[in-house]
Design a protein around this nucleic acid. Structure first.
Lengths: 199, 199, 199, 199
DNA sequence: TATGAATGAGCGTTCATTCAT
DNA sequence: CATGAATGAACGCTCATTCAT
């Protein structure tokens, strides 16, 4: 968010402007899709002049990225601690915790998550997934030692990661109510635990 | 492919033209993404006049859809028979068979599959997935009786379906070589069987 | 109609083709206006191939002209005789006769006449009016000697001619039922007779 | 002119742009007819970017309408007063006054009036004539009581209105010099007075 | 800092017309 | 004689972006 912005807003008024723009951008993206996602429309909807928009964002893509970035919780200290605590838990407890986090993350603002999943092609989709991947990778590093010894740990990791991610993603799009349903959480845990624990 | 075409090519020359157009469309989509997917570029690349393009396709979207349709194997008689034969198999055997089919389908032309997954947003993606969904749904109807009794069969089905689909999709995009790797197939089977068979 | 056609249809089948084309042209003109009056649409509506159309008409304009020509009664022998007979009548009788002819001409196919008046700009409107003008001019040559001596006979003629023509035209467009109403005819006669006769 | 514009020009520079566009539009319409009346040509001739044109006019038709509107004198207070004064005049004086106004209106800018009459089909012609119709209708309300009692007053009105309008229109197109010729005015008055006063 | 005005490249699409069969 | 296929020029219009106030 910082990296790609032309200049940082120094006054609160400017902060507002940026927020207006991003809100408008979200609205436009939702309402008219990626094709209708035009700087002119965004500016108009935001009630700011198109030139003002370009004062904060160097180009259209930057808006899209800022939009995505705004909805990813940046990992903080709490995260590191949480990660640390996982080490001492059982496989099932770890998985349960991970699944919980994934569900919570998406349950927080499912419409926004869905927006990106629905309108953006894979290529355009922002680091979001990278972030997630990274986190899950770290977690996996904790998980693997607790799991059966598969031939190719990378492969197990890959499957675990994407199965979880995408089943949640599909739920975001098609069964958002499940995101807070304990039964769903239980099934997800079953899916992963049984896979990792092995036969 | 037929449905959405403006008029059917009658002469072989015309058939060629349509093929050129679709080939070019694939090329353009791969090379410049959905944003660069313009009728003018497609026509130019195809070496046909833009008007010829519009003689066969009523608009841009139709080309995209034709492109997707061209790469879906239409279920045939063999499919029905195969489906029938599943009934008498064990859970594990059924899953194995299903996973095999999924892998084969994508292994056949992974670049093409990836093309769509990478460049098209969910919304634009054609019935392909619907097809797949339908098939997997039928299969699931066979699978469920052989599985543990979950609280919500719909949920189990949902998870099974998307876990398989998307792990394969991600493999298409990032580990295409796995599509023919027996180890990958074995892990996938493990994922699903252990989930369905229960805890 | 003959003059501008590329080749004369020799067989009855060809005659039909030409008729189909003109019928379709009329339909298209009525339904989509002059802007939608395209050779492709006409051919399609006529059920003939576009190339066949071009075998009979050298270009689009020719169709439009043929269409207009088809609906002008070409002056024949009866006309000359009728004209001759006018010479011996009184002013009022002549005017009555002229008004009758004008009304009959337009009453015959008012929708067609209206079509041209509504959709074609003055410039594009075919010789129709020229024809009419010519006839009315001849008639005027008979009328004038029977009328008062105005300062500028050309002017009187101009006014008489256009007043009649356009009042009828407007009636065609907005009060087609008047075209056969004796009261309307009587008023038109009054308009012209009182103008020509008097003070 | 205001109604159909996308946004109002705020700076004088913008005002100029709009004027340039309308001037160019008039030129193009005159020079190449309605068929050649393309937004690209207009913009080029106006020396402004095509996008600027679209910033002020939502589409091609709007330009045409603005062009027509620009040349209709909007009825003002003077008009109402003039109308009032007619009430106390004799039939002949009223008609004379009305004819005068009609002639003056068209004499003011005959080429412009001709432009519309020649190039635009009836359907496309703007409210101009409606305006005129409305005014003449009001006037007719004053005229009729002073006239003979015809069977169908609506019919008399119709004839009076269109005879005047179209004879003037034809004069605009073919005898513009007559618009200021007292003889022409006298003949027009004769046409209408003798019709209304009756036989 | 924010606004109105301007711009050029390009897009999707249709048209009148001609060529090959 | 009639058809299917092809073509190039043009059209209306929008986009992301920059300049002048």
């Amino acid at each position: 968010m910082i990296a790609k912005m032309r200049k940082l807003p120094r006054q609160t008024r400017a902060h507002q402007t940026v927020d207006f723009i991003l809100d408008a951008a979200a609205y436009i993206l939702a309402e008219r899709g990626l094709a209708g996602f035009t700087t002119n429309h965004i500016a108009e909807r935001a009630g700011v002049n198109i030139s003002s928009l370009y004062q904060y964002f160097p180009n259209k893509l930057a808006i899209l990225e800022a939009l995505q970035t705004r909805h990813i919780a940046t990992p903080d200290d709490g995260y590191a601690q949480w990660l640390e605590r996982l080490r001492d838990l059982s496989l099932e407890e770890v998985v349960r915790s991970v699944v919980d986090v994934a569900l919570e993350m998406h349950a927080a603002n499912p419409t926004m998550h869905r927006l990106f999943l629905d309108t953006l092609p894979r290529q355009t989709r922002h680091s979001h997934d990278d972030f997630e991947a990274d986190r899950i990778a770290r977690i996996a590093a904790i998980l693997l030692p607790k799991s059966r010894a598969g031939k190719d740990p990378d492969m197990m990791l890959f499957i675990t990661r994407h199965a979880l991610t995408w089943v949640v993603h599909e739920a975001v799009c098609e069964r958002p109510e499940w995101l807070t349903d304990p039964a769903f959480r239980k099934e997800l845990v079953a899916l992963l635990v049984n896979f990792l624990r092995a036969d």
